[in-house]
Computed example of a mutant assay.
Amino acid sequence: MELFEATMGLVKEASKAFTSVLLSLMRSAHWDIAAAVRSIEAASSTATTTTTFTDSLVGANHAKYALESYINRKIFQGFDHETFYMDGSLTSILHPDQHRRDCFTQYRDMKAMDPIELVSILPTCSFGNFCFKKYLSIVHPKMEESLFGDLEQRRQVLDGHHPRSQFYGEFLGLAKAVWLLHLLAFSLDPPPSHFEASRGADFHSQYMESVVRISGGGGGAKVGMSMVVGFPVSPGFKLGNGSIIKARVYVVSKN
């Protein structure tokens, strides 16, 4: 269980790092960051409350959390399935013991590997396909063209190649961290169940941690019941032994 927590810690660091790179590129390309954040949030929900939350609460200083929320939502989508729904595999149900062993073996073998080495050797392995799918999901064409001036990286991905750019390298770091967490989750019996805090939900410190300090309210666990979730930043997990890895959330005042 400590291994899973440590691996989730690596996901958190990789998520922050990739978000920081993406935000820096947006600023260099003279994006209207506040407008971009509104667009990201509006795309994630049709609820009017979403736009209201974002419009009034996410200033330039907190844009990184909204962007990280978007990235995590995309990259964790499908986490509860053994192949992220890339195929209809049911091995974990049909041969559970063997599947758990295989997942841990893959985790152990892959842990020390540089992700670019791995996808260079086997570009269309399961991990490679995961990278293709998630890159195209996170970085849409207009975003890529605006940031880099062309769609060259996207063309390479669509052709089944992994770009050797610094940006794609940063993305691979995050993809590898999430893939390792996924392998580890499916090697455990029972596998951890992952959860995400909902917008507008009361803040519960036993299940959530705040990514921001609230003026007059202290940090995460001291925020209390007067705060609600403005938006989720990263998912949490409940492990088989009952312990909780808290979901990270952007909290706002209930009033």
Rank of each mutant, 00 (worst) to 15 (best):
residue 3 L to T: 14
residue 76 F to V: 03
residue 45 S to W: 05
residue 251 V to C: 15
residue 69 S to Y: 05
residue 195 F to K: 11
residue 78 G to S: 09
residue 145 E to D: 08
residue 115 P to L: 03
residue 171 F to D: 01
residue 200 G to A: 03
residue 242 G to C: 08
residue 233 V to G: 03
residue 11 V to P: 00
residue 40 I to E: 11
residue 5 E to P: 00
residue 237 F to Q: 03
residue 123 P to S: 08
residue 50 T to G: 10
residue 61 N to P: 07
residue 64 K to Y: 05
residue 255 N to W: 06
residue 146 S to I: 03
residue 106 Q to F: 02
residue 53 F to R: 14
residue 32 D to K: 12
residue 91 T to F: 03
residue 154 R to W: 01
residue 222 K to N: 12
residue 249 V to F: 06
residue 51 T to E: 13
residue 171 F to N: 01
residue 251 V to G: 05
residue 95 H to Y: 10
residue 193 S to Y: 02
residue 126 S to K: 10
residue 56 S to A: 14
residue 229 V to K: 02
residue 77 Q to D: 15
residue 227 M to A: 14
residue 238 K to Y: 03
residue 140 H to E: 14
residue 99 H to V: 00
residue 66 A to K: 09
residue 21 V to N: 09
residue 65 Y to F: 15
residue 244 I to K: 10
residue 52 T to N: 12
residue 43 A to D: 14
residue 6 A to T: 07
residue 253 S to Q: 13
residue 168 Y to A: 00
residue 131 C to V: 12
residue 156 Q to T: 02
residue 161 H to K: 15
residue 164 R to D: 12
residue 107 Y to C: 01
residue 255 N to P: 05
residue 39 S to R: 15
residue 220 G to T: 08
residue 166 Q to E: 14
residue 172 L to V: 03
residue 177 A to F: 02
residue 192 P to M: 06
residue 190 P to V: 04
residue 51 T to Q: 13
residue 102 D to G: 13
residue 19 T to M: 08
residue 90 L to P: 00
residue 87 D to C: 14
residue 228 V to F: 06
residue 85 Y to P: 03
residue 212 V to I: 15
residue 12 K to C: 04
residue 129 N to I: 07
residue 180 L to D: 05
residue 200 G to R: 04
residue 249 V to G: 02
residue 201 A to K: 01
residue 154 R to V: 04
residue 207 Y to D: 04
residue 166 Q to F: 09
residue 68 E to Y: 04
residue 20 S to Q: 13
residue 116 I to M: 14
residue 216 G to T: 02
residue 97 D to N: 09
residue 139 V to I: 15
residue 162 H to K: 00
residue 213 R to T: 13
residue 112 A to P: 04
residue 201 A to G: 12
residue 10 L to Y: 06
residue 255 N to E: 12
residue 6 A to R: 13
residue 248 R to D: 13
residue 193 S to I: 12
residue 202 D to L: 12
residue 199 R to P: 01
residue 91 T to H: 05
residue 247 A to V: 08
residue 88 G to K: 10
residue 31 W to D: 11
residue 10 L to V: 09
residue 81 H to M: 08
residue 207 Y to G: 04
residue 117 E to Q: 12
